[in-house]
């Protein structure tokens, strides 16, 4: 169980929204993180450079925060097999479904895209079911 943190959630969310909409305003691109990252696997073209820059920004962000000593919680104890399966599902699912929490959940929802609203409802509902089932299984064991 984790603590309810509405203020940092709102503030962090506003930064996520700001980064996303600035990418659209400045570069004319949707800030879908799965799409941007997955297209780095393609042969480099004119769009490869900004995608790499964006991903690097995401990766180095915690280093910028170090002076203010914000802790990044270590990953909860999970088996290696489960991590690999989850990673594969996240990669395949976001690729097949053309987006993740950022592309569909924020950029698409904000634009009132029907596809994104449906995708977000579907992945949220699915994830809620998975968590409900797995916490029940843990309860029995």
């Amino acid at each position: 169980m984790t603590e309810f943190t509405p203020i940092s959630a709102l503030l962090g969310g506003a930064l996520i929204g700001a980064g996303g909409v600035l990418l659209l305003l400045l570069n004319g691109r949707i800030a879908g993180i799965s799409g941007i990252a997955s297209q780095l696997l393609q042969k480099p073209n004119g769009d490869w450079g900004w995608r790499l820059a964006f991903v690097l920004g995401l990766i180095v962000a915690p280093w910028v925060l170090l002076p203010t000593a914000i802790n990044i919680a270590p990953l909860a104890e999970r088996s290696t097999t489960l991590i690999i399966i989850a990673g594969l599902l996240v990669g395949m699912g976001t690729n097949i479904g053309s987006g993740c929490t950022s592309g569909h959940g924020i950029c698409g929802m904000a634009r009132l895209s029907k596809r994104s609203i449906v995708a977000t409802l579907v992945f949220m509902t699915t994830a809620i079911i998975v968590v409900a089932v797995s916490s029940n299984l843990k309860g029995w064991s």
């Binding site: 700001a18 800030a31 995401l58």
Partner: peptide, 21 residues
């Protein structure tokens, strides 16, 4: 600008707690 946008989103993910599984 892409680097800055990635950085902003990354900061937001950390501050908001989205990075905490």
């Amino acid at each position: 600008s892409a680097l800055a946008c990635g950085l902003l989103m990354g900061l937001g993910l950390v501050i908001s707690g989205m990075v905490n599984p």
